[in-house]
Design a protein around this nucleic acid. Structure first.
Lengths: 360, 360
DNA sequence: CTGTTAGCGCCTTCAG
DNA sequence: CTGAAGGCGCTAACAG
């Protein structure tokens, strides 16, 4: 709208908050709006000269294509929903976000995060379905979807992609670390060093819809079973919501006989526990060998031996699958199950006093 | 679930990806589209009975209001741009994101993150201005904007809000920790304990557009000056991009005489340095008192004395300011400068051997 | 309280 | 290669 145009032949585009539309650009260049539109979306359908004049005028008028209009017209929302069972600020979540964003943003998509942290938000989300017609794809990250909820999601008619989901049922694609096998690798490392008294330390998620890495514990047990050795295993379970580090420490120090090796389900418990253990005279790896899982913040810097996984990469892979799917392509391998890799650093070693049951 | 409705008189809305529009709902209920629209956006303008029938029908048809259409019609994009000079996965950034998201999402706004990590992305962003007409507000977080860039941003005609920005010039509102004064508090704590040989340890951001906490160093120096004591200060500068922990350690251990207290510009360097210091026989707080800044991940768990700040809260405050501004309100106090607060934990103490220059 | 109507800004046939 | 015209789905006046 050239509102109260003052005797100017050009509408002054400078100060007012009023934005130039495609019409303004067309008028200024003396072409039709179609030509302007095409100059942006299908440049090769416009003569070079015309296009350049259009682009120049657009730049001068501070014009850009409106996403809202594009979205309405095209029927796409250019938005991808990311469902999280825990806050974005968790290491895994934010890394996934970054990988995902990097891939899809180049294709013009935005990310909308939905954190489902309790039963209220969960019901709210799946009742109101705010993503319906407002997302071109849905990503489920570590999210334990119920059957009916998956049905609702699928009813949206957009691709549903999983990252670290329990199963692939009902998903169009997914990429999930094989936690069980990865944990076996870690456990075999400990056993191979000669450890015969192990402890597995993990945090219970307070909510039932966080698909956390329970499979890691299964892998731990399976590796012990397969070793055929007589191995003592202790299970230390910590509440997530109240001082898990303290819980881990107290339970660990009470164990008698003491384990010689600790498998932490996640680095983020291992790191502060290791730090505080020293106050109680425990040296690592002298008194305990410690292996973590994730290779998250500080792990490399403090020398924690751990199972490395790369959530950024998972996000990127998911993003690529989404783009392909949105592009109408059929995926060759819709479901991927990468392994975490063992990174040897300074926190594992042979036990100081080899167990008498050792077969060495 | 009425999926694959057999012999139903209702058009089966289930399987096809085709979504119901406001028209479909109106038709089904036998009202006009306006009534449907109002039932969602201005419920109190519609009779309760009608509204309920509309909502029921909408639910049955899996209908929700299209954000794209709303956006186009209203001229708003319902999107807020967040400009970051470093990856979202940094503690501060993701916390800000969460606070911001929590506040603005309830008002129907989405967040779009733009990470300006080098001169290319910077130029790209400020040339193409992808946010123009595509964001209802811009948040600058720790971002060192140049004068001309601020001009461009302001030219968008939307509120520009700062979080931890260097100055308030050109901003409609901002909330920034007073780093200088906060750092003085920390430094006075150290001096008050009797320390006379201090080291300030920080990482240099490799890019010029990250407004990092340089003011903290100024505060450190100012507190020393104001103390009127004869205090030796060492400056340890670490590269951000290559093993800052190692750099900090090597420089620190070379110092002669050794400092008795360390002020880390950010916790994230303090934590791994403290961890590795033990290997070199250094106990904390016996050999060094350590104070950090941020109170970030693990700080509480490992007992780090630090200056606590709450970026989530900064995000929330910024979000509220944005909402008010978007609502046409004038802010009473557009610019806020909260202080970080000293949190005493276990890493500071009196020096073992009081300095001879001590005035005790 | 409810219906009618005119666009919001753009893209995409369809003709030139 | 370019122009004209019809909507995409919704909201906001106006009328009733």
């Amino acid at each position: 709208m050239e509102q109260n145009a003052k005797s100017q032949s050009e509408p002054s585009p400078a100060s007012p908050a009023q934005h130039a539309t495609i019409q303004d650009v067309a008028r200024r260049v003396g072409v039709s709006v179609s030509t302007v539109s095409r100059s942006f979306t299908r440049p090769n359908l416009v003569s070079k000269r015309t296009r350049q004049r259009v682009l120049a005028a657009a730049h001068k008028l501070d014009f850009s294509i409106s996403r809202s209009a594009m979205a309405l017209k095209s029927g796409h929302s250019f938005r991808i929903a990311l469902l999280l069972p825990s806050p974005l600020d968790e290491w895994f979540n934010v890394k996934v976000y970054e990988g995902l964003a990097e891939v899809v943003s180049h294709a013009g998509y935005d990310l909308s995060v939905f954190t489902i942290s309790n039963n209220d938000t969960r019901r709210e989300f799946f009742t109101d379905m705010p993503v319906r017609r407002n997302a071109d794809a849905v990503v489920l990250c570590s999210f334990n979807t119920r059957r009916d909820e998956l049905g609702l999601l699928r009813g949206m008619g957009v691709p549903v992609i999983g990252i670290n989901t329990y199963s692939t049922i009902g998903l169009d694609a997914s990429v999930s670390i094989n936690d069980a096998v990865s944990a076996q690798i870690a456990t075999r490392h400990l056993i191979g060093l000669g450890h015969r008294r192990l402890a597995y330390i993990y945090t219970r998620h307070p909510t039932p819809f966080h698909f956390s890495a329970d499979n890691r514990h299964r892998g731990f047990q399976e590796a012990i079973r397969q070793s055929g050795k007589d191995i003592q295993q202790n299970l230390i379970s910590c509440p997530l919501d109240y001082d898990p580090v303290n819980a881990a420490l107290t339970q660990l120090l009470e164990l008698d006989p003491q384990p010689t090796a600790l498998f932490f389900q996640t680095d983020d418990v291992a790191i502060p526990v290791m730090y505080r253990l020293r106050r109680y005279g425990k040296e690592i790896p002298r008194d305990y060998s410690v292996i973590g899982f994730d290779d998250s913040t500080y792990a490399a810097q403090i020398g924690l031996t751990t199972m490395h996984q790369d959530p950024t990469e998972l996000g990127k892979i998911a993003g690529q699958k989404i783009l392909a799917l949105l592009n109408g392509q059929k995926l060759e391998h819709p479901f991927e199950h990468p392994l975490a890799t063992l990174v040897l650093r300074n926190t594992t070693a042979q036990p100081l006093y080899p167990s008498s049951s050792s077969s060495i």
